[in-house]
Amino acid sequence: MSDLPPPAAPQAWPPPDATIVAYDVSRSFGALVAVSNISVAVRPGVTALLGPNGAGKSTLLRMLSGQIAPMSGQVWVAGGDPRTDAAARGRIGLVPQQDGVFERERGIDVVRLSAVLSNLDDVDARARWALDLVELDPDIERPMGSYSKGMRQRVKIAQALVHDPVVIMLDEPLNGLDPKQRRQMINLFHRLGEMGKTVLVSSHVLEEVERFGSHVIVIARGRLAAQGDFRAIRSLMDNQPLRIRVVAEKANQLAATLVNSGSLVGCRVESPTQVEVTTNDVRRFRRELVAASSSQHLRLEEVTPLDDDLESVFRYLVGGQE
């Protein structure tokens, strides 16, 4: 008898409760391969689609919503192929990325029209309900051409919610919103997720995604770079050497203290007040930096992670695939 544990049963894919499934989808525009052989399954709750600009997020979202057909592979959303199945499309709420809106219409009219085209009864009540959800006054008499970007964005979200869809896809929905509106929208996404809806939100802002929820799909250069729990992916990133710029009075002196303490693996002095350090343990570095500056009575002016932008994250995540 072997002491080895029995092999794990292969995990069923897609998960039985997945409401969005893309299998091996690809799409090109001329010579540009926008999305290449991506397979993803999304379950109810909030899932973030993360990637830098030009990574292929919007193309993937457009395939998932049926706006464009994949050149190969298959898409299944809310019970059908949204490209060809109108009923399946009717179970999706879509917030496209583009700014274009019906400039001459009032917000309520746009949401009402969406309700009419979704064959809803009591169109007016539904439109008001959807605008209430996004906290926009349904009685604004001005046409949308005079709305701020944040107001337009909220109308776009309201029209996507008016028919109470099973799946909601939002392409960079927080663009143009102020911090308070962003918080409100993120709370709304969470509420929708808790109601059992599948909310797929794309973003290129890492900090934003951190607040969306725990599930994340990372796209880089048209390929799936990572998929799963955000904290696990973030922790992978945190374990990589991180470059940080420190600007302080006698920064070189601070750096020398930290090199001696062992919290740095590299240090480049750019000027007496500015150094670029490399660390494997960000938390320890931060702790010791604060302690050293305090004990030496040196004022810290700037501590900027140089690798904490998305491009760096994706370089790391896709590094193994190249």
């Binding site: 700014d99 029209l113 064959n119």
Partner: peptide, 14 residues
């Protein structure tokens, strides 16, 4: 051209 077709096109209307 103004990219508003999607709001009508994506609805289940024929």
């Amino acid at each position: 051209e103004d990219e508003t077709l999607v709001y009508l096109w994506h609805r289940p209307a024929p």
